[in-house]
Design a binder for these strands. Structure first.
Lengths: 361, 361
DNA sequence: GGCGAGCTGGCATTCGCATTCAACCGCGGT
DNA sequence: ACCGCGGTTGAATGCGAATGCCAGCTCGCC
């Protein structure tokens, strides 16, 4: 018989007071538990549990008594203990990397918001280097998260590890591998093709590209589909310089392009908006080149600063809100029914014909 | 005697295989526990626990055997169960509101990074409306977080509630109330006084202010200290219009000011950088006013876009990195020793004499 | 050879809640 | 009067790891 229960059944006497006093000193603070509520309400602990569990059977009178007692003693169910017994933590892990990219904060906020509407909390993990993934993964699994949303690359072994643990994964803007995970992504190929087509039709011929980090699949997709579409339209010699998604790398990217070409190109395609902005600033400030009159620049993402009047970027905006909603919905479905097969959803980007490129229309 | 232990001591036979099979079907998946490791290693569960607990006494041989067994069965300590018994979740809650402000994402990333270096995970809570605080607070407490960092306002009752639960709190850019919480903040008064002084000394006389939301203490501090310093320097009639920290509200703010004054002022003091940027864009685009030649604009925060060449804001940059480090350090100290009194640390901002204002130097 | 100190490892218990199982209470049907 | 059924309630058990306590063992020193 649990000691606590015995104590609960013992009528309060002087000794109890002393014990309480000692407890206070030893531990930081005895938390009030469902047993405390039960004692005050004069019912069993199971009854308390039932009242606090939605959809459990309990009479109206029982509910009232328990709730009154709970309020009186300041009871709050312990989510940790609940998680241990129900095998469900009601937490999902969100993995984000590359915070230089303005796009991620928005994503994160939306995800948190959306999950919270479903009673689920977000445990946040950020990556400084790709190499950290393994240790972060380990952490997530130890915390028994119910699901994982990742905007970072996971390799086959990592996905397999998670799958083995029976935790559903949703990849954000990453292609699903081996059908081990669900995925939500923006159709970047189509977006880039649109940008390229518009630029070529408007008469641009000398193209340059500022790519993102080499290990970013997003960048690789964007860059290669731009190169490919250019080739289709008869443009072969495209200068490609590397960036890291940051403003500064956009500036340096433009300088590198100008140097490599011995002068400015007709158009620069940046792998994201922030680099496009850097590129525009460098062109204007350092080479005194008006944008878009002498140089067209396009980006990708549609982040906040893209629409600042000074830039007014021509870009493709990702439908972040719809994408996060889809991510959350898909993950929740698979948490409820782990048998459900993974799914991939692809959203078209919104074409934004801003003022940073000379287009026909 | 626990059934599991009995099973553990029973030598494996045909029946075991069947049971495992059945288990697989019934529950989603029997997680491998320390008992499993113990069985494989031929030691007790407590031994396994000790090996996985840093600083516990265990012989070298024991460590090896246990670790080998653990790797073999793919064991991973369950952080939830550990949290239940140790009364420590190794999670802190971070509360963020107002995501229109570019400043918060940076803060959040830094905090997560810093906490992770100390083996602590961040449970993220975002606020859409102030009214949500109470329910969010309840969530945090249920999840037994070890500490709370909040960049949102908490009132006296809310702070008292947390204090009662024995959870240390660190306020970010908020003044500590009643000594119930630690606080880290940037000396915004001093920052604003510097901005104002510089502007006045450079000859500006007609001033306007774009404030943040009324319920933002940060905005109130910034705005009122600017007004006060202006008064000290003999400038009384200051136009103040309200904004919400967003780019758009900066644009609208400038329009409102121009309308109210019947023309542009000499200088605009915005309560944050993003509104300053909006203000500059509106002035340039809609009124064809060159900045800083015809109009000086200053901001606050020192967020990324503030240093974009098109704006090159004159502003005060918050030392985010030092502030987050201080926040984390203070919170961890108080988690380790709850008796420690709260503390308030104030950091001076970095004065950035950019190019969006005409200053003497 | 004997004895005490210092480790080690095992047993049993505990954290707080959910859930199973059995008991129980009415109540309507036969 | 008896049976059975739906609806409640309480006692007991278990989730998975940490830990106090004790027994056993090793080692050293007299």
């Amino acid at each position: 018989m649990p000691a606590r229960l015995a104590w609960g059944l013992t009528p309060g006497d002087g000794c109890t007071g002393l014990n309480k006093e000692a407890d206070h000193q030893k531990r930081r603070q005895r938390r009030t538990t469902s047993y405390d509520v039960a004692r005050v309400a004069g019912v069993s602990q199971s009854a308390v549990s039932r009242v606090f569990k939605a959809g459990a059977s309990a009479s109206a009178e029982m509910r009232q008594r328990v709730q009154a007692a709970a309020k009186k003693v300041g009871y709050r169910p312990n989510a940790i203990a609940r998680g241990l017994i129900t095998q469900r933590s009601n937490m999902v892990a969100v993995v984000i990397s590359r915070m230089t990219n303005l796009y991620y904060p928005e994503l994160l906020m939306q995800l948190t918001r959306e999950f919270s509407h479903h009673g689920i909390r977000v445990l946040l993990f950020t990556l400084e280097h790709e190499s950290e993934i393994d240790s972060v993964l380990e952490q997530m699994l130890q915390y028994q998260v119910d699901g994982i949303v990742t905007a970072a690359m996971l390799n086959r072994e990592q996905l397999a590890l998670i799958d083995e643990a029976g935790i559903p994964v949703a990849l954000y803007n990453r292609r699903s591998r081996d059908g081990l995970a669900s995925a939500v992504r923006c159709d970047q190929e189509e977006g880039e093709r649109w940008l390229v087509t518009q630029l070529v039709e408007a008469g641009h011929r000398r193209f340059a590209i500022i790519s993102g980090p080499e290990d970013s699949t997003v960048s690789v997709e964007r860059t290669s589909s731009a190169v490919q579409k250019l080739a289709e339209l008869g443009i072969q010699d495209v200068t490609v310089v590397g960036g890291d998604y940051s403003y500064q790398s956009g500036r340096l990217g433009f300088a590198a392009i100008a140097k490599q070409l011995g002068g400015p190109p007709d158009a620069v395609i940046a792998a994201n908006d922030v680099m496009a902005i850097g590129c525009i600033d460098a062109a204007r400030q350092e080479c005194n080149l008006p944008v878009p009159d002498a140089l067209s620049v396009v980006g990708f993402d549609g982040v906040g600063p893209a629409s600042y009047a000074a830039y007014n970027l021509t870009t493709v905006k990702q439908p972040v809100e719809r994408m996060t909603q889809a991510t959350v919905a898909m993950l929740l479905e698979r948490i409820r029914d782990p048998q459900l097969p993974p799914e991939e959803r692809i959203f078209a980007g919104t074409k934004v014909a801003g003022g940073s490129a000379r287009l026909l229309t």
